[in-house]
Design a protein around this nucleic acid. Structure first.
Length: 882
DNA sequence: GGCGTCACG
DNA sequence: ACGTACGTGACGCCG
């Protein structure tokens, strides 16, 4: 079989990798501040090419320095190039190290460029009958293409690649053969290499000349016979230049290399060296791949797989176990069980028969509050076991939850991947063992059981390390007194579910269907044709091309047809109002009515799942379905809430919400006297702000409009204000918005001070914190890129506010749950919507709830300002009124 | 699977 | 000068 030699232009590919990732350059840094983007991009390219090409031999060539025989010949060669940024130069040594660690030779030759090394090697290999593939970011190298030599040129970034064979060279360059490319460059010159070529000759002319005369030599042999023209003159006058350029453009194939083909044999990577390098560079994902793909996962040698009899014997004495329950998919309310593993000291019991958990001794053990159970994803385990009739209690360590608290941005749900982030490489990723997406399936026992065994083992292995970090971060209270108990509360809420009335939804569905059909018909009529109204692309063409309406805003992919755009166009065509109405109703129909009908369980209830380890700020989120974004603002949509009803006759829905919790948190953490005073005195905060920023002397002067604007400013402050953002929001000029902000900070100087300090702290420490020490790291806070940095700065201002509010309601939920039990009430907490808790309760309990729920909520924490809670109730969620 | 859009706090 | 509000999830389209 023909041998294959892979030749890589190390300099050119590294440059491409660097500039391909230039927008993310500050995101790729190791802990020592070394930039790693180009190394990373190079690695991606290398992996892809090695996998695609399967070479027998590989060589990566680099430039030895700036001075070469070309600069000697022509002092300005590459003279125009701006200085290579230090962010890139610092990466070159590591690219070479990376290549070496892959078991690949690197080579540079003084006085020559990398190209010349490749050209020489390619020629030699071809003479030996080898097939050659050259990888570069530089199209000049296509001159080396032959039947045996292919050039791969990176397109954008480095993993997208263009392949040049002789046929493709001809197709791309008007029928020229690869060797003619040299003469083409001689004629056209090259602005990036900074050699001139012949005046007024560009690619087209060069191709025509070469097609007619064959070569540069051919052209000059016949130049005198050409008919008189400026071009002829230029050719004659610049003959010397043309031949000099030809010499500069020609890649050498006879460079005096000190290496031979024998040095290029590719044996494969040196794992030890790679691991060391990845660790140094903080390439966690590559580190993970390395282990997962190359190291057969083995059990701890001292670990024994035991049978049920041994487990039964060991369990009663065990003070602590690690436990892992596997299910078929994310939705633990319904997923099939695949198996479980339990570890006691050095012994592991693993089974695909989950019914074993439902009887003694396992059931008793897991339900015993006195013993410590360590798990991965407490809430998931809790709800899963509940379906098996087992009431899990006494959970001590939750690997997922603790890991999330340590760094809210690392929130993988995959135990294997998460363990790798903490430098534990013994567990394969679920994707690898089970497959991805629709292909995910339960593997054979001989694959499944070892995987579960390694998972349960990882939980125990990581426990002390992560708990120590938690302690170092002062996050023990956050974990032990907030998040861990909250998991039980959330589990109960999810299991309880909220009753939904399918008939109510179906009635709305029928009504909406006919209204939608009518509006749709009107729109097609007005547009003069039918099209897909749900396609922003097609709608854009109708509005902005066919109807010629002015384009207000563009998106990456075309015209924007978002609400704010359409509202500006409303006066110009009657079709716009119809489109807006259609959009509103279509949203209700597809997302809410049809969406919710799909997720009503057999028990007539909707069981959402709260993701406790996802958001960067510490809020919960809600999925399948999301019950935190049920329409509320518009009456039309609010009616969806009529479908949310109590699960028993004679019961009601009861809800309590914090009023302006985020601004109260801001008043507290900023220590701003004026804002605190406003809350202490029970003032309307938006009106108070209006008086301050508009300089009003009396509350009676606050008009609705002024209050609305002040409210927008208050919101803006919480989000990490910018004049631009505020201006856009309230439809004022940027100058006016800037004025409002300045006035705001004059009147609330403590707030200004807080904003500055929060950013300063983030810059100094790399993270910000909430009142309960929930952390968010902000790696971009010192970025050179304005956008990244500004975003991080706004985040530094917003996260302590949003996150502390999240902390507070979490504490409230735990306390409310406890209080309901203490009072022996039947009322159940069902939903949380960030600043609001929703319950169902027998009608008789409503007066009690009206008293105790606000009491518990507003005493969840003690702030410098009071917390205010408002309650409502009614026969459906829609009907909840004061 | 990414994008645009729109629902919530 | 730079281009921007903070945090989410679900839907339909489209390549």
């Amino acid at each position: 079989m023909t041998e294959k030699l892979l030749l890589i232009d190390g300099n050119s590919v590294t440059f491409r990798a660097f500039y391909g990732l230039i927008n993310a350059v500050e995101r790729f840094k190791n802990t020592e501040g070394l930039h790693t983007s180009a190394i990373y991009g190079f690695k991606l390219m290398l992996d892809k090419i090695l996998a695609d090409e399967q070479p027998d031999r590989v060589l990566v060539a680099f430039d030895a320095g700036k001075k070469t025989f070309r600069t000697k010949k022509f002092a300005d060669y590459k003279g125009q190039r701006s200085k290579t940024p230090s962010e890139l130069t610092e990466q070159f040594p590591y690219v070479r190290e990376l290549v070496a660690a892959h078991g690949i030779k690197t080579y540079a030759l003084p006085n020559y460029e990398a190209d010349d090394i490749l050209g020489t090697m390619a020629k030699e290999a071809e003479a030996q009958g080898m097939e050659v593939v050259i990888v570069t970011g530089d199209r000049d190298l296509v001159q080396l293409v032959t039947d045996k030599v292919t050039v791969l040129a990176t397109v954008k970034g480095v993993t997208e690649i263009e392949r040049y064979t002789p046929a493709e060279v001809a197709a791309k360059y008007g029928g020229l053969n690869p060797k003619q490319i040299i003469d083409m460059k001689a004629l056209t010159g090259d602005s990036s290499d900074n050699y001139p070529g012949v005046t007024k000759i560009g690619e087209k002319t060069a191709i025509n000349l070469l097609t007619e005369y064959g070569s540069l030599e051919g052209i000059y042999a016949k130049v005198d016979e050409m008919k008189k023209s400026k071009r002829k003159e230029n050719l004659i006058n610049e003959k010397d230049i043309a031949f000099m350029c030809q010499d500069l453009a020609r890649i050498r194939q006879d460079a005096p290399l000190e290496i031979t083909l024998a040095d290029t044999v590719y044996a494969g990577p040196d794992e030890v060296a790679l691991r060391e390098l990845y660790q140094k560079l903080d390439f966690k994902s590559f580190l993970g791949q390395l282990k997962a793909n190359t190291v057969e996962v083995e059990f701890d040698k001292s670990l024994a797989i035991i049978d049920l009899a041994t487990l039964t014997e060991a369990l009663p004495q065990a003070k602590e176990v690690n436990f892992y329950l596997e299910m078929a998919d994310d939705n633990y309310h319904t997923a099939d069980f695949w198996g479980f593993a339990i570890q006691i000291d050095q012994q592991v019991y693993v089974s695909d028969d989950v019914l074993k958990i439902t009887e003694a001794p396992l059931k008793d053990y897991l339900e015993n509050q006195q013993v410590a159970v360590n798990v991965f994803d407490l809430k998931r385990t809790l709800v899963g076991l509940n379906r098996l009739g087992v009431k899990l209690s006494g959970v001590n360590f939750d690997l997922l939850l603790v890991s999330y608290l340590l760094d809210t941005s690392e929130n993988s749900n995959d135990l294997g991947k998460l363990a790798m982030l903490h430098d534990f490489y013994g567990v394969k990723s679920d994707e690898e063992v089970y497959g991805k997406g629709a292909k995910r399936a339960c593997p054979e026992k001989d694959l499944l059981l070892p995987h579960l065994a390694t998972k349960v083992q990882a939980i125990g292995q990581l426990k002390s390390q992560l708990l120590n970090k938690l302690k170092a971060n002062e996050q023990e209270i956050l974990y032990e007194e907030i998040e861990r108990p909250l998991a039980y509360v959330l589990g109960q809420m999810e299991i309880a579910g909220i009753k939904a009335d399918p008939f109510c939804l179906k009635n709305m569905q029928t009504e909406l269907a006919s209204r939608l059909a009518a509006i749709e018909a009107d729109i097609y009529q007005a547009a003069g044709e039918e099209f897909n109204l749900n396609s922003p692309k097609q709608l854009g063409i109708i509005l902005f091309e066919k109807m010629g309406l002015p384009v207000i805003k563009k998106t990456k992919t075309g015209y924007s047809t978002a609400v704010d755009v359409l509202e500006k166009l409303q006066d110009q065509a009657p079709i716009i109002a119809d489109i807006l109405e259609y959009r509103q109703l279509a949203k209700l129909q597809s997302t809410y009515i049809e969406g919710l009908l799909k997720v009503i369980s057999a028990d007539g209830k909707i069981h959402t799942r709260y993701t406790q380890t996802l958001t960067a700020t510490g809020r919960l989120s809600s999925v399948e379905p999301n019950l935190q974004n049920i329409p509320a603002r518009l009456e039309e949509g609010r009616r969806i809430r009529q479908a949310f009803v109590p699960s028993h006759k004679g019961w009601e829905i009861f809800s309590s919400d914090y009023s302006q919790i985020e601004l109260r948190v801001l008043a507290h953490i900023s220590g701003d006297e004026h804002m605190q005073a406003a809350f202490k005195e029970g003032q309307d905060i938006h009106a108070a702000t209006a008086m301050k920023i508009f300089g009003l002397e009396d509350a009676s002067m606050v008009t609705k409009n002024l209050r609305r604007q002040a409210k927008a400013v208050n919101f803006g402050i919480v989000y990490g204000i910018s004049d631009f953002g505020l201006a856009k929001n309230i439809g004022k000029s940027r100058k006016e918005a800037a004025d409002f902000i300045a006035k705001y900070f004059e009147n609330y100087p403590g707030v200004k001070k807080y904003m500055d300090e929060s950013v300063a702290r983030a810059k100094a420490e790399g993270f910000v914190e909430t009142i309960f020490h929930r952390r968010r790291y902000l790696p971009d806070i010192n970025a050179k890129n304005f956008n990244l940095r500004s975003f991080a700065e706004r985040t530094a201002m917003n996260t302590p506010i949003q996150g502390s509010a999240a902390d507070i309601i979490k504490v409230a939920m735990i306390n409310v749950n406890k209080r309901l039990r203490q009072e022996g009430l039947q009322a159940k907490m069902l939903l949380q919507v960030h600043d609001e808790l929703i319950f169902e309760a027998p009608k008789e309990e409503i007066p009690v709830l009206q008293k105790i729920i606000p009491e518990v909520m507003d005493s969840a924490v003690s702030l410098e300002v009071p917390l205010k809670v408002e309650s409502k109730h009614g026969i459906t969620w829609f009907d909840t009124k004061k």
